[in-house]
Write a protein that binds this DNA or RNA. Structure first.
Lengths: 205, 205
DNA sequence: TGTACATCAGTGAACGCGCGTTCACTGATGTAC
DNA sequence: TGTACATCAGTGAACGCGCGTTCACTGATGTAC
């Protein structure tokens, strides 16, 4: 626990906060250590009391993002239970919801260019989230007619890809590109069609 | 036509070439005008004879990318004809093939942060590619049982999203992340399941 | 309660660097006569 | 064919800038006696 009132009080999290804000506003390229320090009301040199450097600060922002993301996934999964189908659909939706609610974290995670293997903590945080999607896919897999049951890793990858694609192309409005449909609808219907293709939803529904 | 042997000869395209190489190697962030000039064997100032500045050089790289991309799409579409289904599937595949073959262009287009509305030429080049996917979707749409026919823009968006997601997450190996399946297979099966969900492929195929 | 000391978060000045961009120039190429 | 001139692609030096990072320091906080 950081001691309250000690000098700044809680510089570390203030810096992460500032970094997230900057990343959200200006993209991963626009983020600078100096500017983040300034926003936290502190000299650039002070950053080095808490982080090894610029990259390390971004990595910490990403780590927190993965942690929040995994929590959201867990929550969504649990709410969908005991229906394997509902749980699976919920995790897909959670992806988009996360990108919307935590854009700074999202960018730090997926667009900042930092490797998930940078530290064991980062890798672990990232693994936790995808493990949940994997579990949901695995359970769902049991309901697929056995004659045409793809490996669960495969369709969790499909959902992951479609979610990511919808976010990148249609939700995070790259300036000038307009989405033809609300991203939420796009993802919802896309996953729906896909699951129907797997025989998990009756075709006449 | 640039005159041969005139000073450098063809600096403009040499600069674009160098820029693409750099973007491919170091990502959009790692690209610098000075380094591109150096690789083309020329002073940084010389760049300004051909481009308005750093951004303009990236934009030109992206523009060429969109043009190549559209050509590929057209080709794939034409090869798939007269089967609407084959044409549609081919355009999806072309997306991944493009990302593989022209990684520098791909990054300039989708990860460099350049707005597609930057110039009319850029916008036009980008529009040409997506128009082809749109046409393929539109034709395919006619084969869908009318009782459940989504707007063609919607499922072209789905395929676009899944293709993009597969590329970003599994093909362009963000260092450390390993794909569980070959991206080509992933996309192929993903699109297959999706089309089955639309009733365009018989479920027992 | 009060004094002496240890800790260590944040300061402020300085650094070297490479960046994008500007400008007056030069010299190879093309053109007119 | 030869000379005078115009063009303009690329040079080289210079600029101001903000960056990430370092370092000796200072002064508020916590601790021992």
């Amino acid at each position: 626990m950081p001691k309250r009132g000690y000098h700044h009080g809680n510089l570390k999290s203030a810096l992460v906060e500032a970094a997230l804000q900057l990343i959200e506003e200006k993209g991963p390229t626009g983020f600078t250590l100096s500017e983040a320090a300034k926003r936290a009301g502190v000299t650039p040199a002070a950053v080095y009391r808490h982080f090894a450097g610029r990259e390390d600060l971004i990595a910490e922002a990403a780590r927190q993002g993965y942690a929040i993301f995994a929590d959201l996934m867990e929550h969504a999964y649990a709410e969908g239970q005991p229906s394997a189908l509902a749980a699976f659909e919920a995790t897909g939706r959670a992806y988009l919801a996360f990108a919307r609610k935590f854009p700074g974290h999202y960018v730090a995670m997926f667009e900042s260019g930092i490797s998930v293997q940078r530290t064991p903590e980062l890798a672990a945080a990232a693994a936790r989230g995808s493990a949940i999607l994997g579990r949901a896919a695995s359970e769902l897999s049991q309901h697929i007619p056995a004659e045409k049951r793809p490996p669960p890793e495969m369709f969790s990858a499909h959902i992951w890809a479609m979610s990511h694609g919808v976010v990148e192309l249609f939700a995070r409005g790259s300036p000038g590109t307009r989405s033809p449909f609300p991203p939420e609808d796009l993802l919802e219907t896309g996953i729906g069609v896909y699951l129907r293709g797997l025989g998990l939803i009756p075709p006449d529904e």
